[in-house]
């Protein structure tokens, strides 16, 4: 068990290192003068030189990387050229809306997708199964911004059930928070629900065909017990794995959804930074999102220890 833990943790180190090196090199390997790229099209020669000095671009590459990673490890991502403030504090201000959106979406997804996928698998080839599969293909195909605008048009503009856009912190009360969260979280969760429902269906279907399910039925267990205690329990590992892998979709979706619903989160920050070519900010958010993604998946891998007793050496 400790071995598995140590190996899993150790395996993420090269991944994180790769991401860091990649993000660091992004700028350096771009054709053209990196300082000029960072400074933007209207910068003066002095400004470019100042940036060159600030980024240490004249130093040897390895030294630049050393300096850069030392700063990053201290939480210092430099100063945003566009927002004129430290990137770290910028991220600090923007993290809450994004986290709220992601958690609400995750909640909706799991609550909807797992039962749906399980039922579809149990009633294989029935109308319910076809409906779930149809929804899953459709849900996977409708881009989140198309869906977002559709929801806004129907529920905010026409029916006026919810505010059109914006964000309210949960500290301002549950209803203001939820009222503004329902539409973006629903839009964002559709593709995720499609993904999880599909993998749940496939995994449960596979387990239902396994010998030990026949054994469970042969013991005279009620179908409910067979499906939940035996089939779903065994399908847990692939489902949880895809929930983790699907976070990449969620992160991509957050960037778009926050733009559509005008939510002042990290996604919006990313887009604004990209549009303004605000290099330090771009670096920081990519690093942050990627590290979060890798670490969450690491934690998910560790739940295998609980879910599957076979993983243990």
């Amino acid at each position: 068990m400790l071995g598995f833990l140590a190996r899993r943790v150790a395996a993420t180190v090269p991944v994180l290192l790769f991401v860091a090196v990649f993000v660091f090199l992004l700028l350096r390997l771009t054709p053209g003068d990196p300082a000029a790229i960072v400074a933007g099209d209207n910068a003066s020669t002095e400004q470019i030189e100042e940036i060159r000095a600030q980024l240490g671009l004249d130093e040897p590459l390895l030294e630049q990387f050393g300096l850069w990673s030392a700063k990053v490890l201290r939480g210092d991502f430099g100063e945003s050229f566009f927002f004129k403030q430290p990137v770290a504090s910028l991220i600090g201000q923007r993290i809450e809306p994004t986290l709220s959106l992601a958690l609400v979406t995750l909640f909706i997804t799991v609550v909807v997708a797992v039962p749906l996928g399980t039922l579809a698998a149990y009633y294989h080839r029935s109308w319910l199964d076809r409906l779930v599969m149809g929804f899953s293909v459709a849900g996977f195909s409708v881009p989140v911004f198309v869906l977002g605008y559709l929801l806004i048009y129907v529920f905010a503009v026409e029916l006026r059930w919810f505010p059109v856009q914006g964000f309210a912190s949960i500290r301002e009360g549950l209803w203001p928070f939820l009222e503004r969260m329902v539409l973006p979280a629903s839009a964002l969760s559709v593709i995720y629900v499609a993904l999880i429902a599909r993998i749940t269906r496939a995994s449960v279907l596979e387990v239902l065909g396994e010998d030990h399910v026949r054994t469970a039925r042969g013991k005279g267990l009620p179908e409910r017990t067979v499906v939940i205690n035996h089939a779903l329990r065994n399908a847990a590992v692939p489902i949880v794995t895809v929930i983790g892998v699907g976070l990449a979709l969620l992160i991509g979706g957050v960037v778009v959804t926050e733009s559509v619903f005008n939510i002042p989160g990290l996604g919006r920050l990313t887009v604004d930074a990209v549009l303004a070519r605000d290099y330090p900010t771009i670096q920081a958010v990519i690093l942050l999102f990627s590290f979060a993604y890798v670490l969450i998946n690491l934690m998910i891998d560790l739940t295998y220890l609980v879910l599957d007793p076979r993983i243990r050496y």
């Binding site: 790769f18 991401v19 992160i251 991509g252 960037v255 887009v271 990209v274 990519i286 990627s290």
Partner: peptide, 19 residues
């Protein structure tokens, strides 16, 4: 693995921003 650790839209965004 490293490349997959960067969510694809973010990666594309960053590349386009630079190039």
């Amino acid at each position: 693995d490293g490349l997959m650790a960067i969510p694809s839209i973010l990666l594309a965004l960053a590349l386009v921003a630079l190039w």
